[in-house]
Structure formats: C-alpha cells, structure tokens
Nucleic acid binder design. Structure first.
Lengths: 224, 224
DNA sequence: CTGTGTGAACCCCTTCACAGCG
DNA sequence: CGCTGTGAAGGGGTTCACACAG
C-alpha cells in the first residue's frame, strides 16, 4: 500500500535543470516577500527576474498545483512549498574536510544559516592545524575522527576543500563513512559509487570559461 | 580582405557547453601528458574519462582539424591548441573585490598560476582592512582605487566576493571601469550590459541541489 | 476576464553511423 | 586497417498556444 506521506506523490522524473531553477525561484520569492508582495503571477515573476513564464509554471507543476487560476501564486505559501521540496526545512548538517584558506572561509560563512545548514565539524590531516580554530571558533579535528562524527552527528553533506591530489581519497573516505552528498571545490573529477551525489564548484573551470569569452569576443562593438 | 590571423577562422557559433568541455578535455590531457602518453584517440580519451568519443571529436572540430586519421591526437599539441583557444596563453589579470574570508582565500590561491592567471589587486571598502595584507602578502586597497588600477594594469577579470547586498553595486562599478568579464561568488543574480560576461559560483545553489537530492532520494536501496 | 496547467511545436545538443583520409 | 570529421537520427528541454478553472 502506498503510504500518503508528508511528501506528496513522488515526482516521477524531475530534471536537474528544473530543481536547480527551484532554488532560483525561491530567491526571487524571498526578495518579493521582503518587499511585501503577497501574490505574484508567473508572468510577473518572469518579467521581474528574466525567466520564462511557461517554464516557471511547468517547473512548479512537477510538484503540485500551487497556483490559483486568475490570480497567481501566494508568495509566502510558495516559498514554504519550495523550501520543503528542496529539503531546506530539514536543517542539513555539513562537515568541511580540508582546513585550508577556503575550508576556513566556508566554516565561518554566515550564509549557511539562511538555508538551515549548519557546520558539524571541520577536519584536516595536518598535525599543526589540528586543535586550532577558525576565526569563528570552529575547532579543526583530525580526519581520522571523521567517520565517528559523521555517524554520531548524522551528517548529511561533506564539503571537500582539499588539494586536487587528495580529493579522490578524501571522497572515498567520506563515502565509506556513509556520506551520500558531496560538495567538492577541488578542480577535477572524482568517481563515486551510484547513489552518491557530487556537486562540483570549480573556480578554475569558470575562469577558463571567462578566458575563452575574452579571447574570442568579436561581439557588437566594432562589427568589422 | 580577411586577415589570416593567428586565431583561425572565427568559430562561427560555438555552444557554451562545448567551450566548457574544452576545459575538461584539457585537464584530462594534462593528466595524460604527466603520465607520458604521447598520442590518444577520441575513443581512448572517452573511455578513460567517461566522455563520448563523437562529442569530443565534434567539439574539437569546431576549432580546426587537430587529429590525424588512423592515429588520433597528439597529446601535447592538442594541449597547446586548447590552451590557446581558451586564451590561457594570455596571462589574464584578475582583481579580487571583497577582502572577506573568501576573497582573502582566493587572493592566495596557488591554483591560478597553472592557468596563467595572476592577481593584480585586492580591494575592500572597510577602512580597517585597507592597508593590511593577505597571508600571502597581497595588499588590500580601497575600492576607490579600482578604476585606475583596472586601467593601469589592463585587468581582464573582476572576481567579486562581496556580500549579496553589495554585489550589484560592485559589479556596476567594475563594468564602469571597463571590466567585461566577472566571476561572482555572491549568491543571487546581477544585471550587466550586453557584451559583459558573468560567471556565477553559487555555493548556496549547489548545496540546495544536494539538499533536494537527499530529500527526494528513493533510489536503488529499498526499492519498495 | 485573468492566469494556471499542459499538450504540441520547436530548437538545440548529443549520439549514431559511416565516408574518407592517412 | 584505424580513426577522424561529419551528416543524419534521436532525445530533452524550452517555448508556444490554448482549454479551462476561479
């Protein structure tokens, strides 16, 4: 028997592009809510933020019927729906592995709180770092303690900020400890078993993309 | 008359997906070169790194005929071609605007050098920070000096690491100073005039995508 | 009459399959 | 004979257009 869970209908097959846009819509709605807007139509949302109205409706329709015909969407209601769909009402726990400059910066990043994320631990291998703290006061522990903390604190996401050469090994260890979602900043690709999701934040790739743009711009100005 | 430039044939309309993959191919080739591989076929490259062979060939074919039929591609030659196509042989100059934890981390990031990027300046608005230095010794200057430095040092890319609320204003100032390529870490969207390219590195978006995955996984294990 | 939800058209990107060069 | 370069087929995602609900 199909249990009518809190989470409705299993969205059979939803594109990752759609889910990524949900986050963007949520931000737009946050802005609208802050400005006091109560209700908005897909057309107005599209106009205001540069989306396509039909796409917004189609994306949302994957998860239910949130709109009122002839009126539009209730801003606050839709925000809460989206937060639930995205799982932001769960208070996800992160660990950060790699206490270099970037890892330390992330450990103290105040932006996590708005999404309900919290840092459960900060790890490194360097004996000189272990025992010291980030500016914000988060203690650096040795990676050997990672599995027990992941288990004890029910950690959801591993944020990996180690050098590229150590990336695969670090990911392997996190996966072995039960992690199924990884955000990795090290340039390059890592392999994970099925069922584990990796999101890569690749600064080098982004910069190279800009570099290509600059090297090949023959756009608009001076159309020779 | 069409000048036969160093840069060949203007690649009429190349998809951004293609150019993004060039970076990935380049990395794979770097690995192969480091391992001493001289020559590789598109099929072997695809096998080894999980691409599609036809796609590799098609992507490369946008920019010339780099392969030798019956043999494959010369690893080192193709690396140099790709570096040129991506503009990595130009020694791009960056400024970092926002000397928070992240900005400071990026200022000292050693990974830029491999791509020929260099940091021409590090900026902030806080009087308390101006005049101090990053751990790596890069001086923090006041943003008011940004336009003159961009001009004087022929800066190519602005890396923006300011709080979200200040993002749009910062971008506007950089664009006014002549910047046409921006890498922004602040969550949210910014508007730029046509001809200016923005790449966003959005940690929050990536984490929310992982959050969605965790909230909606009914994959493989326990297929009820 | 306004705006949602949605089938159909459209468009672009990927994959397949093969002609042809080395 | 092997592998590139490429036209044609296939698949997905976005946009269009409209039936219908409020």
């Amino acid at each position: 028997m199909a249990v009518p869970e809190q989470r409705p209908a299993l969205p059979d097959q939803v594109s990752e592009l759609t889910t990524a846009r949900l986050s963007v819509y949520l931000r737009a709605l946050d802005q609208l809510a802050a400005a006091g807007t109560r209700t908005i139509s897909s057309a107005a949302l599209a106009d205001r933020f540069g989306f396509n109205a039909a796409l917004i409706r189609k994306d949302l329709a994957c998860f239910g019927e949130f709109g009122v015909r002839g009126v539009g969407y209730d801003v606050d209601e839709l925000r809460h729906h989206l937060r639930h769909i995205l799982g932001l009402d769960r208070g996800l726990r992160l660990v950060i592995i790699g206490a270099g400059n970037l890892g330390l910066a992330l450990a103290d990043y105040p932006g996590f709180a708005a999404d309900g994320f919290s840092v459960a631990g900060l790890f490194d291998v360097a004996p000189a770092k272990v025992g010291t703290r980030s500016r914000g006061g988060i203690e650096i522990r040795h990676v050997d303690g990672l599995p027990s903390l992941i288990d004890r604190e029910a950690v959801d996401v591993a944020v990996v900020t180690v050098p590229s050469a150590a990336a695969q090994g670090t990911v392997d260890r996190a996966v072995a400890a039960g992690i199924r979602a990884i955000l990795i900043f090290s340039p390059g690709t890592v392999r994970v078993p099925p069922g584990v999701k990796v999101r890569s934040v690749d600064v080098t790739l982004s910069l190279e993309s800009l570099s290509f743009f600059l090297a090949n711009e023959r756009h608009a100005r001076n159309p020779d």
